[in-house]
Every structure is written in structure tokens, then in C-alpha cells.
């Protein structure tokens, strides 16, 4: 596939307050274990239900931190397209996501601006919700192209200030 056939959002298509399309995912034990193994996280609370209950005092195995980040990354770049380049991501887990949960990722644009180097940054307010309650809240900063000729991935050194 040529990159010309792949669409990416440009700055002029983004406004403060804009909502990202929500993403729903039914979480199973496989979801949790796949994520843990893919992130090379062998800790038992992410694959051993007995350990999670009797050692950690939780109700089941739960999604691990790097996999949580991977879900947020996928959510952001599903929206921006491949030229969207993550600069920063901060999240706080207030409760865990377990098998049987339906997690919903949602988000909105908090800010958009251009830095001194001409890089366009979009600040996003994101969350994972389970049963309508926030399980993980996340702030992400993603660079997007100013126009179709711009490409944040070409930035290096002092031209990249996440």
C-alpha cells in the first residue's frame, strides 16, 4: 500500500472539544493474558486467577500496565492515522479491568497548538470506562501534521519536543 492511500488527520480537521469515536472491547481472560505475554510481563496476577485472588486480594487477573498503554496508543492512532506521533502519555489506574468487563475507551481534544519548531500538538483527555465508571484516566500528547505535506515522524533532536 502506498502511504498516499493512507489517511491521517491534519491540524485543520481538529478542534478543542472534539470527541474521539468511542471504542468498546469485551475483555476476556485471553485479552488479559495476550496483553501480558505480548508485553513480556510474566507476573502471576496477570495470568493466574488464584494468585490474583488469594495474594493480591482482587477478584480476578487484570490488564497490566504496558497493555493498558498499548490500548490507549491504538485508540489514539486509530483516530489520527499513521502520521500521528505520540509524544507523551500519562495515565492513572483507579481500578483494574478484569475478564468479563466491557471496557470503553473514550476521549476528547483538550487543546491544540504549534510549538516553536512548528510542530502541531494535540492534547487529549482519554479514559477507560467499565460500567460507566472511569477505570483508567489518561492524558496524551500527540503530534499531528499541519497539512498533508507535513510529517511529525521526520522530526529529530531539537525539532522533537514532546
Amino acid at each position: 500500500m502506498s502511504s498516499a492511500a493512507v489517511e491521517s488527520l491534519t491540524a485543520d480537521q481538529i478542534q478543542v472539544g472534539q470527541q474521539l469515536p468511542p471504542l468498546s472491547q469485551d475483555v476476556t481472560a485471553t485479552t488479559v493474558v495476550l496483553g501480558a505475554m505480548a508485553s513480556r510481563d510474566w507476573r502471576p496476577m496477570h495470568h493466574d486467577k488464584d494468585f490474583a485472588i488469594n495474594r493480591n486480594g482482587l477478584k480476578d487477573i487484570f490488564i497490566n500496565t504496558p497493555n493498558n498503554a498499548a490500548w490507549f496508543e491504538r485508540y489514539v492512532t486509530d483516530w489520527t492515522g499513521p502520521k500521528g506521533r505520540l509524544g507523551r502519555m500519562k495515565f492513572k489506574m483507579s481500578s483494574s479491568v478484569f475478564p468479563g468487563d466491557r471496557m470503553v475507551l473514550q476521549g476528547s481534544v483538550e487543546g491544540i497548538g504549534t510549538d516553536d519548531t512548528g510542530c502541531c500538538w494535540v492534547d487529549l483527555d482519554l479514559a477507560v470506562l467499565v460500567d460507566g465508571a472511569v477505570s483508567t484516566s489518561c492524558k496524551a500528547r500527540v503530534a499531528v501534521p499541519l497539512d498533508v505535506n507535513d510529517n511529525p515522524w521526520q522530526r529529530k533532536g531539537d525539532q522533537w519536543r514532546p
Partner: peptide, 24 residues
Amino acid sequence: NTCAAVQNGNPLFWDRQVAKDITG
């Protein structure tokens, strides 16, 4: 493995030509 675990279809990781054009 990571992309499959979260169903991330970003062509930067799957399409050699797109990756070459955008991220080298």
C-alpha cells in the same frame, strides 16, 4: 504480538511501504 493483543492495525507496523514512506 503487541499489535495483535490490542488489535492495532496501524499500517506503520504492518505495511512495509507505508512504514518506509512515513517512518523510514
